[in-house]
Design a protein around this nucleic acid. Structure first.
Lengths: 201, 201
DNA sequence: CTCCGTTACGAACATTTGTTCACAAAAATA
DNA sequence: TATTTTTGTGAACAAATGTTCGTAACGGAG
């Protein structure tokens, strides 16, 4: 991944990033040539090697066709899922209430979605009403994981526990009762595992 | 701000966004013309009106010179401040440990910075060790606010309280003692107010 | 109905821009 | 030192691209 660069190559790469940040579009070969005091052909060759080393992607014969391999932005767009209807397709785009951007260092790879926390059933785990939970989609969970589950057509957060060969979904609040998971429970679906929480004050 | 668009204009704008998302660079007039089954001149005029209405910015005579006014990304880069030395300049770039991107809907306008929570002094407010706190820089606070303060050269989170004309910085944990703020306390500095919390599991 | 903004075409023009080629100096490497 | 890689030039070509102009159909507002 990402071969090392020479001084000049780095200079060009930095200039590309600077240009995009400032202008909002990619630079042309001549833009770079002008800024770095070089000729188009020199820059052109440098861009090729930058591409060979994996730092940029060049669209052949297309103006301003430089695309950065590593995004300038380190954020991930996570769709926020609103109410979930009784039907089957839980993850259709139509259900998206919008997107929240989350720093990529906060979340693992995989399919992600976000849920708005409704109620105080998880205060024991320091998750509050109004928080936004980032979930990684997965059907299986380990004991102790906090998971998002579809219970009676509503998406909620619960702690998943295995005890005496029985599986439970436990709220972290003494005012609520755990739900036992039977092998044939059609009313309950595990949607994913909690990977991050975001709270706004 | 942002005048209303006709059906066609919206179509063009959506196509621009789609293109940028997919290709990483702005579309040319002819790219759009091809996708929408129109001629370059038609698209060209539509782009002008889109510019007039404030949705895009056109770089004259520059290839792929379409720049979106509203960023596709709704994230804000917030610098994470690491250890704070005894010296004065608390907010110099040298102290930045990195950046975290936060959805713009989560934070207000103003200067922001982030602190990594160290210890359990705020568990009572459901803020845990390892959480990242997003702070808006400000010197004054209202009673009840959770603030970031520089206490003995260390940045910590505390709840600010006014009682009987005295000011306190209170941990939300019975194992810790409140700190009284005297008018001439040089050891204590309020850095800002808590606006969001991010937790990684 | 008339006026006007919008949408539309097609052709032509002027720039911008990617790309190539031959050649060479400078720097790193063996 | 010999060899390879990197960096560099200048000119020229071909393609991509923004832009303009004249013309016209369509639909809503008055």
């Amino acid at each position: 991944m990402l071969e090392k660069l020479t001084k000049r190559q780095n200079e060009v790469l930095r200039e590309i990033k600077k240009f995009i940040k400032k202008e909002g579009i990619s630079p042309s070969v001549r833009d770079l040539a002008g800024r770095l005091g070089k000729t188009p052909s020199t820059i052109h060759k440098l861009l090729r090697t930058l591409q060979d080393k994996g730092h940029i992607k060049l669209r052949d014969n297309i103006s301003r066709g430089i695309v950065l391999t590593e995004k300038l932005s380190a954020a991930v767009m996570v769709p926020i899922i609103g109410r979930i209807p009784a039907g089957q397709p839980v993850f259709s785009e139509e259900l998206y209430e919008g997107y929240i951007e989350v720093d990529s260092s906060l979340v693992p790879r995989g399919e992600l979605f976000a849920l708005r926390i409704n109620g105080d059933s998880m205060v024991g785990a320091n998750i509050l009403d109004g928080d936004t939970a980032i979930i990684r989609k997965q059907e299986i969970a380990e004991s102790g994981d906090i998971v998002a589950a579809l219970v009676d057509g509503e998406a909620t957060l619960k702690r998943f526990k295995l005890q005496k060969k029985k599986a439970y979904l436990c709220p972290e609040n003494d005012n609520y009762e755990p739900i036992e998971l039977t092998p044939d429970s059609t009313q309950v679906d595990i949607l994913g595992k909690l990977v991050a929480v975001v709270r706004k004050y």
